[in-house]
Deep mutational scan, measured.
Amino acid sequence: MALNTPQITPTKKITVRAIGEELPRGDYQRCPQCDMLFSLPEINSHQSAYCPRCQAKIRDGRDWSLTRLAAMAFTMLLLMPFAWGEPLLHIWLLGIRIDANVMQGIWQMTKQGDAITGSMVFFCVIGAPLILVTSIAYLWFGNRLGMNLRPVLLMLERLKEWVMLDIYLVGIGVASIKVQDYAHIQAGVGLFSFVALVILTTVTLSHLNVEELWERFYPQRPATRRDEKLRVCLGCHFTGYPDQRGRCPRCHIPLRLRRRHSLQKCWAALLASIVLLLPANLLPISIIYLNGGRQEDTILSGIMSLASSNIAVAGIVFIASILVPFTKVIVMFTLLLSIHFKCQQGLRTRILLLRMVTWIGRWSMLDLFVISLTMSLINRDQILAFTMGPAAFYFGAAVILTILAVEWLDSRLLWDAHESGNARFDD
């Protein structure tokens, strides 16, 4: 018995066209964080690309023209004298008006014999932002004059995390709450300039795509075929072959399989920071003279006294001054041990922890910024005066060393310790 099946006739004509040209192939790229070699397709503007294995951002879609970056830099340069030299806060102490600005706080630190601690604050609040705007201006002028731009481009990517104007702005709020127990506070004209400078700096850093600047100024022929001998440069993120001198053909720094002496430098910085954190938390970090009496505060006791007036601000200072430094030390110690013992479990967790400490590390400088600003506000000789204690130097040095330890660690070593050939990683 035959089955009668109805015929289905399409209502619209289906047209099949042959592909007349070869589909576009992607360029081969190595991930600078996990060293995976993959094919990167062509990316349009405002599109980002991520590593298929570790999800690290390979290409950032946010990109401004150099002219727009230069305009932002010149605007920031105009704001800087007002943000640093004009009063941020006014207080009335014992019937006398006192003005506080950024430069005055750094000068008070240096004047009291601790120039190293003052230079830490100076670099993060004044030096690094000033280098940022002058570097962008150098790129703008240098591109037109045919100057060598490689050193500036190499420095810009590392400079971003040292620009800490946003953290200093939080420190202004913390210092205001600490001082309000002794005097009446009012915002100064410099505060508005400083807030504007923070906003412009944040926007500029978020749109400063150094890798795209490398592509514009020093374009290189990408690798179009897969080759395990391809290496990625950690300076400019170019994937290719080393030249005859073993250097990256684009930025001219040595092109090595792994960062040289990464573990040794990381261990040295980490152990030194552990040693410095002990006096930083045991010795007094601030000293207040009130009517001839002397009151010393460690980091913890200062947080407890701050909690009596504002528990939320005390929580912020606790996280930045105690929780973050010790968390960074514990995480980095764990990561280094996992590399030495070739741990194969929990790779995803370790990668996330490394990215976390990379982002939060700079916030530990908050305590030094609060001390710097408070020193310029309260300084009335023996009637009422505020000065920093010996722990300030140890704390600042420990924070900087932990930042350097994270920067010096080559994250690809975590993958080397893991089993080879993993296309995915999980716990």
Rank of each mutant, 00 (worst) to 15 (best):
F425N: 14
I383T: 02
W92Y: 02
V331G: 14
R30G: 12
Q186N: 08
L300N: 09
V406P: 02
D427I: 14
L282A: 13
L409S: 04
L213A: 13
N101E: 02
W140N: 05
R250M: 13
G246R: 12
S305W: 01
A320G: 15
I172M: 12
G113A: 06
D60M: 06
A73C: 08
P284S: 13
L154V: 05
L414R: 00
I378N: 00
V102G: 03
Q7F: 05
K111H: 12
Q104D: 10
G188Y: 07
S45W: 03
P87W: 05
L277I: 11
I253W: 02
G142H: 02
R62C: 04
Q220N: 14
I177D: 03
L336I: 11
T5L: 07
W359E: 11
G361N: 00
D416V: 12
S273K: 05
I285S: 01
L169Q: 07
M332T: 06
P254V: 10
A196M: 13
R59S: 06
L213M: 15
D114W: 08
A175E: 02
K229E: 14
N291H: 13
L366Y: 00
W214N: 14
G190T: 02
F217N: 11
V370N: 00
Q7K: 10
R158F: 12
L353D: 01
I131L: 05
Q382K: 03
T349L: 14
M147N: 03
H252F: 06
F425L: 13
I371N: 00
L335M: 10
V121G: 08
V174N: 05
A71I: 09
V125W: 01
V198W: 15
R259C: 12
L373Q: 09
F38N: 04
I199F: 14
P279W: 14
A397K: 03
L156F: 15
A56P: 00
F386T: 00
L409G: 04
V163H: 10
M332R: 00
L404R: 04
Q264R: 02
D243L: 07
I378G: 00
L3Y: 05
P219S: 14
L352A: 11
A307L: 11
K12I: 05
I285N: 01
L336E: 02
A49H: 05
V331S: 14
P24K: 12
S45A: 07
L277Y: 01
S286E: 00
S45T: 06
L139V: 08
E407W: 12
T75E: 02
V170Q: 02
Y289Q: 02
R231C: 09
V357A: 04
T11Y: 06
I253T: 08
L169Y: 02
A49T: 02
E161S: 10
M164S: 04
Q186T: 10
G361I: 01
F425Y: 15
F141M: 11
S338I: 14
V198A: 15
I371S: 00
R59P: 07
I322C: 13
A268L: 04
I172T: 07
T134H: 12
Q47V: 05
P254I: 08
L3H: 07
S376C: 04
G190K: 01
M76V: 03
L377S: 02
M356Q: 13
M155G: 02
S305A: 12
T204Q: 10
R256S: 14
L353P: 07
W64C: 11
A115I: 01
V133T: 04
V399W: 02
R68P: 02
K12L: 05
A183Q: 00
L156P: 02
I360D: 00
F386I: 00
Y394W: 08
W363S: 01
I351H: 14
L366G: 15
D381A: 10
H90G: 05
D410I: 00
K111W: 04
M109L: 10
G171C: 11
Q7I: 05
L165P: 15
G361Q: 00
A398Q: 05
Q264A: 05
A2G: 05
D427A: 04
I311F: 14
D63W: 15
E215K: 15
L213K: 15
V324Q: 08
L290P: 02
D114H: 11
Q244H: 14
L149Q: 12
L200H: 15
R144Y: 14
L270Y: 03
L66T: 10
T9Y: 10
M80P: 05
H418M: 09
C266Q: 05
T327L: 13
I288T: 01
R348L: 13
N291M: 15
T387H: 06
S65D: 05
W84Q: 08
A223G: 14
D427W: 09
G171P: 00
V317G: 01
V174I: 14
V210K: 15
L270R: 01
G142S: 05
R380L: 02
H90T: 08
P81Q: 08
T5Y: 05
L306R: 00
E296D: 10
F194Q: 09
I400R: 00
H184D: 11
Y168D: 05
P222I: 14
M147R: 05
F341E: 10
G105Q: 14
D60T: 08
E228T: 13
W267L: 14
P87Y: 07
E407G: 11
F318G: 14
G235D: 07
I285T: 03
Q382G: 05
S301F: 09
L277F: 00
V195M: 13
Q29R: 08
